[in-house]
Design a protein around this nucleic acid. Structure first.
Lengths: 137, 137
DNA sequence: GTGCTTGCAAATCGTTTGCAATAGC
DNA sequence: GCTATTGCAAACGATTTGCAAGCAC
């Protein structure tokens, strides 16, 4: 599905800016921060404001069109892939990797949680990625 | 185990401030932020500085004597309970609850992760807690 | 022309940094 | 005395806010 239809299907008014930001998330699976999105998109959209990027990313995550990741202690990252998967943060290089989420973990989503209503399940690993492991030798 | 011995066993020099902060985490299972710890402890330790609280909480989490939680997008929270368990953030009241971690999830810790070295596993749920569900009716 | 969206600049606030004072062996 | 620890004040940086201008139906 393309950016336009993702917005539509999540009840989001598809403005030019919102399409561009959603498209950026779909084409760059790097879990960018708001600032990353702004910096890169403003090259081709010079009038784009940082406020709009923040507003839009918040809107996308609230409406379920994107994931807001809080794995990094310093900033929030976003992911256009909303399918269940695990995130791995390398404490050395700061990169976030995708990993498959164990089947047993997905089942938890339907679990009763002591009476609380669960709307989001996140699984985060931290450690040292294979690239940094090699470099360290 | 008391605060003093937790510090010792994690190779942390047990200064008065560090014992007080570790003790606060053990006695207040509310997943406080650095500011929470500072505000409450400074009532009885007026000379305590915020810098020391930040330094100490960082040290505790680095040495494994406490957990650093990044479930809240706005601030970092800390947990003196380092045993494997899941955290639930209520999007309405902002409180963080403890939930048991499914046995199948714990096993993941030993899993091979595409060659990456995993040192931490975190499981976060977000949603609306049972108190806020009742209030909303 | 009314309501939603955008954008600029300023403010906010959790956190970090620089550096001098202090404490403990 | 030397090293680790603490504390103050200033800086920082990601994010939010206030508000005016622009856009769309």
């Amino acid at each position: 599905m393309d950016a336009y239809n993702i917005l539509i299907s999540h009840g989001i008014n598809p403005s030019m800016q919102r399409i561009a930001i959603m498209e950026y998330l779909l084409n760059h699976r790097t879990h960018p921060s708001a600032d990353d999105v702004y910096t890169n998109l403003s090259k081709t959209m010079p009038t784009l404001s940082k406020t709009t990027v923040y507003n839009t990313l918040k809107l996308l995550s609230e409406k379920g069109a994107a994931l807001m990741l809080t794995i990094d202690e310093n900033k929030v990252n976003f992911d256009g892939d909303t399918s269940p998967h695990t995130h791995f943060l390398c404490k050395t290089c700061g990169r976030i990797y995708d990993l498959p989420m164990a089947g047993s973990v997905k089942e938890v989503m339907a679990m009763d949680a002591d009476g609380h209503l669960i709307t989001e399940v996140h699984q985060y690993y931290r450690g040292i990625c294979k690239n940094c492991l090699v470099t360290k030798k």
